[in-house]
Amino acid sequence: MKIYGIIITGHGNFAGGLQETIELVLGHFNNIKYVNFKEGNSLDIFKEKLKSAIEELSFENIICLTDIQGGTPYSTAVILNSELEKNIKVLSGCNFPMIVSALDECDTDKSIDLIIEDIIQFGREGIDIFKVKKKSEIEFDGI
């Protein structure tokens, strides 16, 4: 049984782009809502869209993954946490590994705080740089 809902939000088409990626790679999930903060949206319109998405999720606990700490989507989610009767955990720096972790942890018996720690750690571990190896560094076992 899923113990929390997930909101993905950010500037521009951040949430919509991640939605396309998630659905292409992992499929559709009923416990995720996506909310874009598009150019031209007023703060009031965005806040109403985000509030609506949170209320559509029938979970007491909501994990809100945002693009930028302190940005409008992040700040609006923090404000809604104090206004709504839900436990909303707001995280910034959202990347695909964080979403995979959030989806993977949905059916666990862990506390929401431990789940948040896991999501952040998985997100950090998903950041890397490709390094070209010299031919002399490549091991070849043969056939």
Rank of each mutant, 00 (worst) to 15 (best):
R124G: 07
L50R: 05
Q19V: 04
N36P: 05
A77S: 13
K51V: 11
D44V: 14
E60P: 02
L18Y: 02
E105D: 08
F122D: 02
D104F: 15
T66E: 06
N87K: 09
A15E: 01
I62Q: 01
K38M: 15
E56I: 02
I68A: 01
A53R: 04
G93W: 00
A15Y: 00
S52N: 15
E83M: 13
H28Y: 15
I127A: 15
G17I: 04
M98F: 07
D128H: 09
S92L: 12
C106M: 14
N87V: 08
I116F: 01
L80F: 01
K47D: 08
K33Q: 14
I116C: 02
P73G: 06
F96T: 08
L80K: 03
G93P: 02
L50Y: 04
F37P: 04
G126Y: 06
K38N: 13
E56S: 09
Q19C: 06
S111G: 04
E117D: 14
N61P: 01
K89A: 12
N95R: 00
L114E: 10
D67P: 02
I88F: 11
D104W: 14
L65C: 03
Q19Y: 03
Q69K: 15
F14S: 09
V90C: 05
S58K: 11
G16N: 12
C64R: 10
K47E: 11
K86C: 02
E55S: 14
N41R: 09
I129V: 15
E39T: 01
K51S: 14
Q19T: 07
Y34H: 00
Q19E: 06
K131H: 15
L57V: 03
E55R: 14
F130M: 13
G17Y: 01
V78Q: 10
K33H: 12
E105M: 05
I115M: 06
V90E: 07
K89C: 11
T76E: 04
N61W: 03
G40E: 02
I45V: 10
N81I: 05
T21P: 08
E48R: 07
V132S: 15
L103W: 06
C106Q: 12
K49E: 05
D118Q: 12
K110G: 09
